[in-house]
Design a protein around this nucleic acid. Structure first.
Length: 462
RNA sequence: GUCCCCAUCGUCUAGAGGCCUAGGACACAUCCCUUUCACGGAUGUAACCGGGGUUCGAAUCCCCGUGGGGACGCCA
């Protein structure tokens, strides 16, 4: 009997999908696909204040755009439905009951203010801020008295003293934690909803997840979750903690690093395949350096090569994959991507000068005869050629029409110029720039009148 | 403060004691191709955080520093 791998992505719908989350989702997805297992999407929306249905929908849309389809989850269903934690309250309540009955959890009547003060005091005393255990040994009557005062308790997990939690992390190897370093933590909020440590661990176990892949920031959370699962006699999944994705300043990726949400990259015109190729190599070493088609990625995902160190996101590398992806697209696909009304000929003209759709806009203006103002280099080229040259050029254009070869032939005979001395002034006069797409097809796309006007504008009698 | 994680070119990484004169990719530079840019080809600059061990031999193992990060929340 072969053991099926089951991975998952469990975002909380409190914001848009970010690069870091997308990467762990990708890794989890690829791992499942590589081994023919299942990939689950679970929505962790127990924080009613911050969770938003719109975020959830956006999250799923971005995931689908990236091609990270799930085998179980919202809108798909599955044996462990429902897949939104906000709908799993009844199940959690059952487990809370078991824990409470077994004396493994107890109601805590401390208020948020009291707790904050307590932590502050401990910190000042140079001690680790941990729950002091105030409510751990309350008698039945004491609890009743507090409830009668209208206090609504949270539920705390009673951390077993002297326990040693060991597990082998998929990426970090053997780990060992002592329960002595962990204070009793809240598993049910005052409003009755389940807290992260609890529902996250419990759902992974109960949904049959075998490989939990998440950010490094969860490594020290793992022993808490292990204790919980042990207390409930639920099967422990395996855990793997990948190094965090950081920005240019070395700090974990956050809003202040600019556009790091998948939605923003998408809106700017980045290809999902480019994003995927880049993400695949951040904190992970594939066995191929070059471009990978999305369908080939599972075969080249190597879980044993997931990185422990944090990885820095740099847009220059993403840009490289974007170019690689663009190169592999047909002109028709490119045209759709640009979202323009432009002709296929125009797309073919500018495709090597465009990394994002916005890059095509100036070239469309050039073709219309509206080039950008000349820079210093361009001014020099125009001056060096001289007005006579453009007189001759306009004349030649009259004879040649949009045939650049013919145009330059005539011009060469008439002015004696050749090579760069011949082409550069033409290019600059026509496009306003020293660099750009091929001149011959560009001239064909320009209306004869526009081309004439451009050349004339630098001639003697313009 | 307590506990935990991490550390190879500017960046992403290969490297699991001799194959390392530390390899590849991106970026950068130069050259070739080319009317320009891009593409492609060639070449180059560039790294094992520091100090101690262990060993015939250490980027690789151990210890101590240093630096960065995380957890200790009624956020996830």
């Amino acid at each position: 009997m072969s053991i099926l791998i089951v991975t998952r992505f469990a975002p909380s719908p409190t914001g848009s999908l970010h690069l870091g989350n997308a990467r762990t989702a990708l890794f989890s997805h690829l791992w499942a696909r590589k081994l023919g297992g299942r990939f689950i999407l679970r929505i962790e929306d127990t924080d009613v204040e911050r969770s938003d249905l719109r975020h959830r929908d956006a999250l799923m849309a971005e995931l689908r755009w990236l091609g990270l389809d799930w085998d179980e989850g919202p809108e798909i269903g599955g044996p462990s439905a429902p897949y939104s934690q906000s709908e799993r309250g009844a199940f959690y309540r059952q487990l809370f009951g078991r824990l409470e009955q077994g004396g493994q959890a107890y109601p805590c009547y401390c208020t948020a203010d009291e707790l904050e003060l307590s932590r502050k005091l401990q910190r000042m005393a140079g001690k680790p801020p941990r729950y002091a255990g105030t409510c751990r040994d309350l008698t039945v009557t004491q609890r009743a008295e507090r409830s009668a005062r209208g206090l609504r308790p949270t539920l705390r997990f009673a951390v077993p003293p002297g326990a040693v939690l060991e597990f082998t992390d998929f990426v970090h190897g053997p780990q060992r934690f002592s329960s002595a370093d962990i204070g009793d933590f809240i598993i049910r909020r005052e409003d009755g909803t389940a807290a992260f440590f609890f529902c996250n661990a419990v759902d992974d176990a109960v949904m049959g997840v075998t490989h939990v892949l998440r950010g490094d920031d969860h490594l020290t959370n793992t022993p808490r979750q292990l204790m919980l699962l042990d207390a409930l006699r639920l099967r422990r999944p395996g855990y793997g903690h990948v190094g965090l994705l950081v920005g240019a300043d070395g700090a974990p990726l956050s809003k202040r690093h600019g556009s790091t949400s998948i939605a923003e990259f998408r809106a700017r015109g980045f290809l999902s395949a480019a994003l995927l190729n880049h993400l695949l190599r951040l904190g992970h070493a594939s066995d191929v350096d070059g471009w990978l088609a999305v369908k080939d990625m599972p075969a080249h995902f190597r879980p044993e090569h997931l990185g422990r160190a944090s990885a820095r996101f740099e847009e220059s590398q993403l840009l490289h994959w974007q170019k690689e992806g663009l190169q592999r697209m047909s002109s028709a696909e490119l045209r759709t991507w640009m979202g323009s009304e432009d002709s296929i000929e125009f797309v073919e003209l500018v495709r090597h000068n465009v990394v994002l759709p916005a890059d095509a806009v100036p070239w469309a203006a050039v073709v219309r005869g509206e080039p950008p103002p000349l820079g210093q280099d361009e001014e020099r080229v125009i001056a060096a050629a001289g007005p006579e040259f453009f007189d001759a050029a306009a004349d030649a254009l009259h004879q040649s029409g949009p045939d650049l070869k013919l145009l330059t032939k005539i011009l060469k005979e008439r002015t004696g110029r050749k090579g760069a001395d011949l082409f550069m002034p033409l290019r600059v006069a026509l496009t306003g720039q020293a660099h750009g797409p091929e001149l011959a097809p560009l001239l064909k796309l320009m209306s004869p009148e526009t081309a004439r006007r451009r050349l004339k504008s630098y001639a003697r009698n313009s």
